[in-house]
């Protein structure tokens, strides 16, 4: 009799846990650049939908997509174009066409230490530096010192975006030091007098963002230049789902794209879609 009671109790516990987990829990994983933005969204969204729980973790766009393929997350945050091979892997895993939704805009900023006199470079100069073809600042009109390159780990969307848009798909210099997260790159460059790094426009504490010189023009990463596409290193931040959004995930996605959701984008340092 006693045993029967405890079994029943155990079953009840398992059932209640299962329903609790099912009742409005959304996992979001991926781009470190997007974690801060998504946390803002989650906070505001939770205030309106207290029943829905959001779990947001970073790790990089590649990590988010890998988790989506493994079925370990509902939404992948991706800060670069999704490769056809990745879409194919998702389709093979689920049998449904995956969905990619733009949720905000960002400009990749290149930045240097405040003591560096350089304030603007051409894409070709930046490409030569990060590709390892130019090793000293003096070759770019700067001080007589070696260029210390900081990049992101190879799975980050920012890394792939810069590789594809600045280096035309070529490799970074083997001397480039990969760091986990844009925050780490900013912090490293703020301590390295001859350092240069890149990251989302949202982070620039302790470093100086470079203007991009295009012909006679110098373009700063500002909301206007990024939304108009005049700033050359702008990109879309996206959510990737394994299939059409359903239930709580759809509720969240619709809210993010609504005027209410987009109102939080600016505060996180990015640019709303409209």
């Amino acid at each position: 009799m006693r045993r029967l009671g405890s079994t029943r109790l155990g079953l009840l516990l398992v059932l209640s846990w299962a329903t609790a987990a099912g009742a409005g829990s959304i996992t979001v994983k991926g781009s470190d650049t997007m974690v801060g933005l998504c946390q803002r969204w989650a906070q505001a969204f939770r205030a309106q939908h207290p029943g829905v729980r959001l779990q947001i973790t970073g790790g990089g766009s590649g990590t988010g997509l890998a988790a989506l393929v493994e079925g370990a997350t509902d939404v992948a945050m991706v800060s670069r174009p999704v490769a056809p091979s990745e879409l194919e892997a998702l389709r093979r895993r689920t049998g449904v066409a995956p969905v990619v939704v733009e949720v905000a805009l960002d400009g990749v900023t290149f930045f240097v230490h405040p003591s560096n006199p350089l304030r603007a470079l051409t894409p070709a100069q930046l490409g030569a530096a990060f590709g390892g073809r130019v090793a000293r600042w003096s070759e770019l009109g700067g001080p007589e010192a070696r260029i210390i390159l900081y990049t992101r780990e190879a799975t980050s969307g920012t890394f792939e975006f810069v590789r594809d848009h600045l280096l035309d798909g070529d490799d970074f210099s083997p001397m480039a030091q990969p760091l986990p997260g844009t925050g780490a790159v900013v912090s490293a460059v703020s301590r390295e007098r001859h350092g240069v790094g890149f990251g989302g426009a949202a982070f620039t504490k302790g470093v100086v963002p470079l203007r991009i010189r295009l012909g006679d023009d110098e373009v700063s990463p500002t909301p206007e230049t990024i939304r108009s596409g005049r700033y050359p290193f702008s990109r879309a931040l996206t959510f990737v789902l394994a299939g059409p959004a359903r239930g709580e995930t759809k509720l969240f996605l619709d809210w993010v794209l609504s005027g209410q959701g987009q109102a939080h984008v600016g505060a996180a340092g990015f640019f709303p879609l409209r």
Partner: peptide
């Protein structure tokens, strides 16, 4: 000069690969 070790490579990359 900077350098990358075996253990650090596994730690940095294993979380990001498709099994």
């Amino acid at each position: 000069e900077p350098t990358r070790t075996v253990a650090a490579t596994i730690a940095a990359e294993l979380g990001d690969v498709v099994m």
